[in-house]
Structures are given as structure tokens and as C-alpha cells.
């Protein structure tokens, strides 16, 4: 059994679908975290899921924008840690807007030619979890 020590302040992202942790690492921009330690545990044994990934991040609790997690997978458990204790389990919801995470695939969209333009998507239908490009309104399909 691999041992990773506890954290003083930060996050434990649990119940990540096995194999998804690296994507989340990039989407949360953890590679750009200037102060903090990140531990990625892959293929951990899970009673609920069989196998799962876990990400532990030692950093100030306001350092990461977690909204995007709701878009990636709202089944992820977010534990917020302070003084070595879980102070909050945050429920994930679909973010109203996501920025620079997914790219518009419509070749007729202005984002295909205008440099420096953020890729912005808005939640157009929470029931079907549909996101549309802010500029051309084309629905994003995975």
C-alpha cells in the first residue's frame, strides 16, 4: 500500500474516475500552482467504483477554481482541508460558464481565427448538460 501523508491545508479530490486525474490536473491548472504540493494517486482501490483516482493538493484553500470540476464530473468528492481536518465537503454543480477548458469545434466560429480570444462556453440547458459557445452558440459535443 502506497502511503501519502495528510495535508495541513488544501483539497482532497476523491472518487475521480480512474484515468481522469491527469486531465483534471491540467484543467485545474495545478501545473501552474506556484506554491503547493500535488499528489496524484491513480488506480486506487475503491469499494464504490472498483478503481479510482485521487488528487491531494496542499495549498491555500482559495487558490483553485473548482467550478470546472462540476463540468468534468460532478460525482467527484471535494474535501476541503484545514489544520489536517475536513472542514467542508463541497457538492459540485454544473458551472454556468467555462473558460479556456474546451474548444469550439465549429469551423465557422470567430474563435477559429481571432487570436487571443478566450474559449468561453455557457450552460444553455442544465437538464441535458448542454454547453454552447458564447460566440457562435454551437453546442459542444464530447
Amino acid at each position: 500500500m502506497l502511503n501519502i501523508s495528510g495535508i495541513q491545508e488544501g483539497y482532497v479530490l476523491d472518487h475521480i474516475k480512474a484515468g481522469m486525474s491527469l486531465r483534471i490536473y491540467h484543467d485545474l491548472k495545478l501545473d501552474k500552482l506556484t506554491k503547493g504540493t500535488v499528489a496524484i494517486i491513480m488506480n486506487a482501490v475503491s469499494n464504490k467504483m472498483g478503481t479510482k483516482d485521487i488528487i491531494k493538493v496542499e495549498c491555500p484553500v482559495d487558490a483553485i477554481d473548482l467550478d470546472i470540476l462540476g463540468y468534468i464530473d460532478h460525482n467527484i468528492t471535494v474535501n476541503i482541508i484545514k489544520d489536517d481536518k475536513i472542514i467542508e465537503k463541497r457538492a459540485l454543480t454544473l458551472p454556468k460558464e467555462i473558460r479556456n477548458v474546451i474548444k469550439c469545434k465549429n469551423p465557422r466560429c470567430i474563435t477559429s481565427i481571432e487570436q487571443e480570444l478566450d474559449q468561453v462556453f455557457f450552460l444553455s440547458d442544465p437538464d441535458t448538460e448542454t454547453y454552447r459557445c458564447k460566440y457562435c452558440e454551437t453546442a459542444y459535443n464530447n
Partner: peptide
């Protein structure tokens, strides 16, 4: 008027 969709919004 622009051939690219969303250009006026930009």
C-alpha cells in the same frame, strides 16, 4: 457583417 459566427460579439 462577418463570415465568422460571433465576430460581431467580439
Amino acid at each position: 457583417r462577418h463570415p465568422k459566427e460571433g465576430a460581431p460579439l467580439v
